[in-house]
Amino acid sequence: MNAVPVTEAELHAYVDGALPAVRAAEIAEYLGQNAEAAQRVAAYREQNAHLHTAFDDLLVEALPRRLRVGGAARRRAWYPYAAAALLMLASGTAGWHLHDRVTGARAQTTQIARVAAMAHAVYSPEVRHPVEVGADQEEHLVRWLSKRLGASLKIPHLAPQGYALVGGRLLPGERGPAAQFMYQDAKGQRLTLYVRVSNDVRAPTAFRFAQESGVGVFYWLDGRLGYALSGETDRNELLRVADAVYQQLNP
């Protein structure tokens, strides 16, 4: 079956999801017949998971004073933009108190990524009914979803990034209604923005990235709202769009 021998490098590329689908399938089959290689592949995957478990806390932990914008770089004016995106979580007062809140926020964000990725996987391939309300009724869409979620929602416009609004739908969220807005580029590649409301107000968190069965998700919390942008596109592209979404929601 394995006409082409499996190289060590390919085993790693398999672990890292860097192989074309056809070759990955061949490797999977090879691993089915080769327990030693299969064990090593499992161990390498475990290493990656282990690394994330051990160090991912640093992504949401409050930054020490010296790494905050003012501390590291007095020479240059990165200060006025401290409010942007990620560093908000570092600008609080009591470090440990903040840390506790952030740790709580973390469990929430992981959950939102999972739910958003699933909603993306379910609805983005839809040809006939991708959304409940189309972009032609945008005003109605935003009023309806704002009312159902009990928060004033905004729909980001992503035309400058190359994505047109397809429309949106109401979804069951973890603790109540949630909204999904769908966008599409000229090639039909779709992104979805999942929004849900929580009862407690959170300090804004960093952008975090998760991957759930092939769907990449950038997600963050901001006040009562949690956002997750999902797509089966490359991470930099998704980050570029997530950044635009964030900028529009926080002018």
């Binding site: 992504l59 949401v60 914008v69 942007a84 960093a206």
Partner: peptide, 30 residues
Amino acid sequence: VESFATRAMQYIPRLRRYARALTGDASAAD
């Protein structure tokens, strides 16, 4: 200048995570 700084800031937590794993020491990492 502003857009560089704004964009660079978002990578600080990632740089920190990597540095921590790389050096094995929280204060050396920072």
